[in-house]
Simulated scan of single mutants.
Amino acid sequence: MDAAPPLDQAAPAAKLRLYEAILQATPDLTYVFDRQHRFIYANHALLSMWGMTWEQAANKTCLEIGYEPWHAAMHDEEIDRVIATRQPVRGEVPFPHVTEGVRIYDYIFSPVFGPGGEVEAIAGSTRDITLRKQHEQHMQLLINELNHRVKNTLATVQSMALQTLRGSTGMADAQDKMESRLVALSDAHDILTRESWQGAELGDVARAAAAPHQGSEGERFDIHGPAFLLDPRRAVALSMALHELCTNAVKYGALSVPEGRVGIHWAWSGEAPDEVLELTWREHGGPAVSEPTRRGFGSRLIERGLKYDLGGDSVLAFEPAGVTCRVSMPAHRAARAAA
């Protein structure tokens, strides 16, 4: 079987068929204007976007095709500019698609030179960049959100460092406290990262805080409650508060003796629209508790910071039978997790 001749040796009709096949196969929109701004060629992709046949579209201007007046006027000016400058023009524009709504297109108009060097037509190629634009917008949102989270995290660490140094007896004590608090903050971020920072399930937050202090059989904590999804800010705040409660329980409370236990329970209370989420930390089986002579970082974080971050209330009580902490927040501050 004889091989096909090279393209530069092919007959004009064969070349035309080849070019036509390429232009019709491409998903890009390809077209040609004459010097009077009329379409003298449009490929299938463009005709499909218009919802027209070539017989309906041939020799019409953008305005006659149905482009918005501002859109048609913009292309008229660009076509004249290509003719005058003999240089390509590029731009981006939204366009209402018949079946897919408004799409964003990147286009280029290029001069087609005649035998005498004059611009005899204007060739155009347009590409749908809607998905790329949406991806760029999404990436910008992610960058903005990341910047926001980094600033918040740095502010939290700064406050934590200042309060830790202020309430520590020496550098060794400050180092130990700071390290444990940073680990607690990291654990909260790990939970949120697993959920793409959409929120954290309250049970996961409670179990992560308790995990370092559980016994070999996990008998030190009784953790239960229905599924709740906390937004990132409240998940971090509650995680840090539970860490401080655990630390205090290990040093002075129920977790300082083998028989001590801690209950972490939560539930909805009240009726909409006044429904609230109530969480209770209760220690028992530990040494007798007395009111501290001064409030440390943990107490201030629970009584002031947690109340602010949750948009609710927080009460820390040093009862003789064991420390109790009651936390509540309005229902709109937390979301019921899907069953």
Rank of each mutant, 00 (worst) to 15 (best):
P5K: 10
A11F: 09
P12F: 04
P12G: 04
K15N: 13
E20K: 14
L23D: 02
D28P: 00
R35E: 06
H37E: 12
A42P: 01
H44T: 15
A45E: 11
M49N: 00
M52C: 08
T53D: 08
Q56S: 05
K60S: 08
K60F: 07
T61F: 05
C62V: 05
L63M: 12
E64V: 06
W70Y: 11
G91L: 04
F95D: 04
P96K: 05
D106Q: 13
I108T: 15
S110P: 00
G117N: 05
A121M: 06
I122P: 03
T126C: 09
R132E: 15
Q137H: 07
L142C: 09
N144V: 03
N147Q: 13
K151D: 11
K151H: 12
M160Y: 00
M160C: 07
M160N: 10
L165A: 15
S168N: 08
A174E: 09
K177E: 07
S180P: 03
S180M: 07
L182I: 12
V183Q: 11
T193D: 05
R194E: 10
W197P: 00
W197C: 02
A200M: 03
D204P: 00
A209F: 04
R220W: 03
H224G: 11
P226S: 12
F228P: 01
S239Q: 15
H243P: 02
K251V: 08
K251H: 15
S256R: 06
R261I: 08
G263P: 02
G263R: 15
G270S: 09
E271Q: 12
D274H: 08
V276C: 14
W281R: 03
R282H: 10
H284E: 15
V289F: 00
V289C: 12
R294T: 14
G296K: 07
G296A: 10
L301G: 03
L301T: 01
R304K: 08
S314T: 09
L316E: 04
P320F: 07
T324M: 11
P330F: 05
H332E: 13
R333N: 10
A338P: 05
